[in-house]
């Protein structure tokens, strides 16, 4: 009894208020998005607005799949984001291994130079890239998009991966050599599994970078059948009639992989941000 009273008295009200406000401000837009996607037409513009619906209507999702090429856009996004992730992670894992195992004169300068590249703004790069891709025939091309996103992923990934590789003791690899493994085998079976948390974090980072990007896709894709989800969604919004349940249904579906990835790696994300990026 007395402990319960004691606990109640110790409740810090500023903490409670802060948490409730934070959850409301951050969470409500997501709730409203999901709610709108299943609101029946009669409730959509009612005043006062309804904050719950007892008769969910999945017409928004149905119209999204029947009247737009949503699945094509999703396929494009998936191919480009996966391709960019594979290229970027492979390239930066090799480079991080090289930098930490075989330092050579100028490798620190190389790291710094790559770091500079990370800070280059997409809006600055996309202008000449558009000109170059136009001449090289890489506009409206999966490969062009994959290379563009992969190279944007590399600087950050390399930066984040280096501490992970550096933390792996050289003795571990030497033990593998003693057991008869060659360098490739020891890297594959000993070093890379040890760096798995870092590799997962950069994979998710690169995938989301490509999945969510608007600017590069807007500039480097002009054909409807090659559009990625973000530009397709913007074009649906700009269409003459704004069908909000349909738009919010699309928004919910675009967010799904993001949410899954986020739940899956949030602990790596916090660790990675702490260890590598901001220090």
């Amino acid at each position: 009894m007395s402990t319960a009273l004691h606990r109640l008295a110790r409740v810090r009200w500023y903490l409670v208020i802060g948490i409730v406000a934070l959850v409301a401000i951050n969470g409500f837009p997501f709730y409203w998005m999901a709610l709108t996607s299943v609101k029946p037409g009669t409730e959509l513009f009612s005043y006062p607005p309804t904050f719950f619906t007892t008769a969910p209507d999945f017409g928004g999702f149905q119209r999204l799949f029947e009247t737009t090429n949503f699945l094509t856009y999703a396929k494009n996004s998936l191919i480009i984001a996966t391709g960019a992730t594979v290229v970027s992670v492979a390239v930066s894992a090799l480079a991080a291994y090289g930098l930490t195992r075989f330092p050579f004169p100028g490798s620190r300068a190389f790291s710094t130079a790559i770091l500079y590249a990370y800070t280059f703004a997409p809006i600055v790069i996309v202008v000449p890239l558009y000109g170059m891709f136009r001449e090289a025939g890489l506009i409206n091309n999966y490969l062009g998009m994959i290379l563009a996103y992969a190279s944007f992923g590399v600087p950050f990934s390399l930066w984040l991966l280096q501490p992970f590789f550096r933390a792996i003791p050289a003795e571990l690899e030497e033990a593998a050599f003693v057991d008869g493994a060659n360098r490739v085998k020891s890297a594959w079976y000993v070093v890379f599994p040890q760096a798995a948390p870092g590799l997962i974090a950069v994979s998710v980072f690169t995938f989301l970078l490509a999945w969510e990007d608007y600017l590069f896709a807007r500039v480097l894709i002009t054909q409807d059948e090659l559009k990625t989800l973000p530009i397709a969604l913007h074009d649906l919004y700009n269409a003459s009639l704004q069908d909000w349940p349909l738009l919010m249904a699309a928004a919910v579906l675009i967010n799904l992989p993001v949410l899954i990835a986020f739940l899956f790696v949030q602990k790596y994300l916090v660790a990675g941000w702490g260890a590598g990026a901001i220090k």
Partner: peptide, 21 residues
């Protein structure tokens, strides 16, 4: 080996970020 392992990252960043600048 260090340079060899770094070269893919180097050329990717060079081609899509440095050359465009």
């Amino acid at each position: 080996w260090g340079a060899l392992l770094l070269s893919p990252a180097f050329f990717l960043v060079l081609g899509v970020i440095a050359v465009p600048i």
